[in-house]
Design a protein around this nucleic acid. Structure first.
Lengths: 255, 255
DNA sequence: CGTCTATTTGAGCCCCGTCAAAGGCGGTGG
DNA sequence: CCACCGCCTTTGACGGGGCTCAAATAGACG
């Protein structure tokens, strides 16, 4: 929570998110603050922000609520390929492509800034360190996708679910969205199923097993990780892929 | 195979690859040709080019042979999260990160150019259109990762294997590495297993089923797709995610 | 021609999917 | 504020797709 007082409350999540990677200068933060002049859009839970096949137009910066990136098959099968929490960009670069190859859906009610690509381009040109941070953000997102591939391809059902829960804990904690080992997890068991590639019924049994073993508590969309060590061992969780811990220190404003 | 005569035989695969997205000018091609002054490195089959945890140093451009990106777990489970064919970069951007979050291994004997990040940076600065093409290349690689997530999370064993085979057919055909519906597939059944998240034994049975249904022929590392239509239907394959078909036309040299 | 790796086959079984139905909970409208 | 409705969670029984273990066969390579 470095220098939280320097940034406006609304855009706060973004600079907090980026400062995981790079320490920003006051000028950098001011430039980020100007994104607040973008259109602020609200979408209801369970609606799509963009659909596969659409022509991408704007870049979206999540302000509140959870969203997901997903792909589906004609017969209804659906795979969530990424989750977005406040402060994260959904689609920094995909506007380069002609057509969306995936959809973005709101899990909860969401608020986001929608800005033209030129706004981001101007920002990265004027503030190179912000540009570096955004690139970092993209690279980490891609790294997370790779870890999810490992998750789906190699881990068992209980390992997958545990791994996802720990990842979200780490990501939320990095931006101050946790209280101790507790955080809001607005996903339904159906969502968890679509993200882990197992069925909702089996997600249910898996969560019960995690509860029975006193590894988690989960009620009213509040998740508590009761024993992080044992959970990490169970999930074979190694946080390296999140590239946290101020790895971007060498890019710092005062370096 | 546009203008293949304009480019040197050695670097050919790269510009061919990039021209899937953007039509390059002669100057662009010349600039790409200069990458040939980079160190050309050879590695034996089944060796690692980089390992998870290493500090990334160089950018690798595949010249010949196949390589893969993979992640593994302490207990030996291994997931291949991407395949590289000649003309593709393994790790255009990952040098930005402090530590590799995955490994890169040679499937066959491989040759690749190893260049310092500054070489790529200079190239993209001097030749913006090449920079665009490289960005495109990265975005498509990421899109492929998302499709693989869908593959692992939602498709059955036979669908997964069929999907992977068709994808490699499309990617190889785009750079002229196919003869009719036949191409070299140097993967072992173990590799296919690690890429699709099923066991090698079951890959074997799956391939037999594909053969029995006269969908493929596969011997001596030569794969033929006997009935592409039925294969695509079986795999629920939609090539959109590869963003082929000169989507980058609007960035063309003469646009 | 021998060795090592890759492919193939078989038997048994288990993790997880499927189908179906019963509770629980939150949200909405009267 | 209550009652209803829809979605979410939970439970049970059953079946099957894919895993495991093990061993035989076939190729590849020196």
């Amino acid at each position: 929570m470095r220098n939280a007082s320097f940034v406006s409350p609304m855009i706060n999540p973004l600079s907090l998110n980026l400062e995981q990677y790079v320490r920003l200068s006051p000028e950098d933060r001011d430039a980020l603050d100007e994104l607040r002049t973008s259109r602020l859009i609200e979408a209801r839970a369970r609606t799509d922000l963009v659909r596969e096949g659409d022509r991408p137009d704007v870049v979206r910066l999540m302000v509140s609520g959870w969203a997901c990136r997903y792909k589906d098959l004609p017969d209804g099968r659906r795979q969530i390929v990424g989750l977005f929490i406040p402060g994260e960009f959904c689609d920094l670069n995909v506007y380069i492509l002609q057509r969306m190859d995936h959809s973005i859906g709101a899990i909860t009610k969401v608020q986001y800034y929608a800005m033209g690509p030129e706004v981001v381009q101007r920002l990265t040109q004027n503030r190179p360190r912000v540009g570096q941070a955004l690139l970092w953000h993209e690279l980490v997102t891609t790294s997370v996708q790779r870890e999810w591939l490992l998750n789906l391809g190699q881990r068992s059902a209980i390992e997958r679910v545990a791994h996802l829960l720990i990842e979200m804990f780490y990501r939320l904690r990095a931006t101050g969205h946790t209280r101790g080992h507790t955080f809001d997890l607005p996903l339904t068991q159906n969502d968890l199923a679509d993200a882990t590639g197992i069925t909702a019924v089996h997600v249910n049994r898996t969560l019960q097993e995690l509860r029975r073993d006193n590894l988690i508590a989960f009620e009213r969309k509040q998740l508590t990780i009761l024993d992080l060590d044992r959970m990490m061992k169970l999930a074979i969780f190694n946080p390296n892929y999140l590239h946290l811990d101020q790895e971007g220190r060498h890019l710092d404003a005062n370096a």
